[in-house]
Amino acid sequence: MRTSRQNGSLYINIQNKIATLEFGHPASNSFPSELLERLAKELNLISKNDSISVIILKSEGEKAFCAGASFDELIAVSTLQEGKQFFTGFANVINAMRTCGKIIIGRVQGKAVGGGVGLAAACDYVLATENAAIKLSEFTIGIGPFVIEPVVKRKIGLAALSELTLEATNWKNGYWAREKGLYSKVFENIKELDDEVAILASKLASYNPSALAEMKKVFWENTNHWNELLAERAAISGELVLSDFTKKALAKFSKK
């Protein structure tokens, strides 16, 4: 069932050492600030929960995985502080995923845009369908993917990041994302995806949780400065969103 709540929904299901976090929003599973805050808080709590070894991150429905941050909130930004605060939402989630002591499996069933691509990149292992196309469209509204750049580049490298960022109107399909390293496996349909997610999560949950936690630290080596880095990036985006270029571009988009 898809949520109709304006601030979105976040459901947590814990079974057999596996925590499934399912987020949803009527606007293509986009994230208002309140939902980003809830997700970051939940990830930080799960990190301290010894009864959980693995996290599955997924979204509602069979269409979009995540359309990024809330467009309505972006349009409403009117001060530098509001701008920085808006972009800090995804920064906090990425840092919570990075520092969480549990392996995070991303289950990506559909398209991901902007922050949604960052969310997938912050997972430790991603399984997706061939319909899980990605796009970084930030340039089309006068900003850039500054907050998510470190986590996306870490997964796919500078060349692929440059291609994705500069071709801001082009979708890259699931196979492109697998070839570049964002996705580990791509499946023809959601049933195959879900079967494989369940198998992988079950296997990981049977391993030594201490070994998983130590390996997670290895995966994220040399990222201890990201709290400061992503805050700086949020400030850059917060300033750009107040530019005349962006205000005009947002006004055009909001009329569509």
Rank of each mutant, 00 (worst) to 15 (best):
A67L: 03
G83C: 03
G110K: 09
A96I: 06
Q81F: 08
A67E: 01
F87I: 00
E82T: 11
A133K: 09
A67K: 01
V117G: 11
A132D: 00
R107Y: 12
I104W: 11
V108K: 02
V126H: 02
Q109A: 14
I103M: 02
A112D: 06
I105M: 03
C100I: 06
F90W: 05
N95T: 11
G101E: 15
V93K: 00
V113K: 09
Y125E: 04
T79G: 06
V108C: 02
E62H: 13
A96G: 04
K58Y: 14
V113S: 14
T99Q: 09
V93H: 01
A132C: 04
V113H: 12
G115F: 04
K135L: 12
I56V: 15
R98Q: 14
R98P: 14
G106H: 04
G83Q: 02
R107D: 10
C66M: 02
Q109D: 09
T129D: 03
K84I: 08
G68R: 02
T99C: 10
S53V: 15
A64C: 11
T99Y: 14
Y125I: 08
L119Y: 12
F90Q: 01
A64P: 10
F71P: 09
G114L: 11
G68F: 03
V117M: 07
G101L: 15
A120M: 06
I103P: 02
C100A: 07
A91Q: 00
L80T: 09
R98G: 15
S78V: 10
G116M: 08
S59C: 08
G61S: 05
F86P: 07
G115K: 03
G68S: 00
A122M: 13
L127E: 00
T99W: 12
G106R: 01
I105A: 05
T129A: 06
A64H: 09
T79H: 06
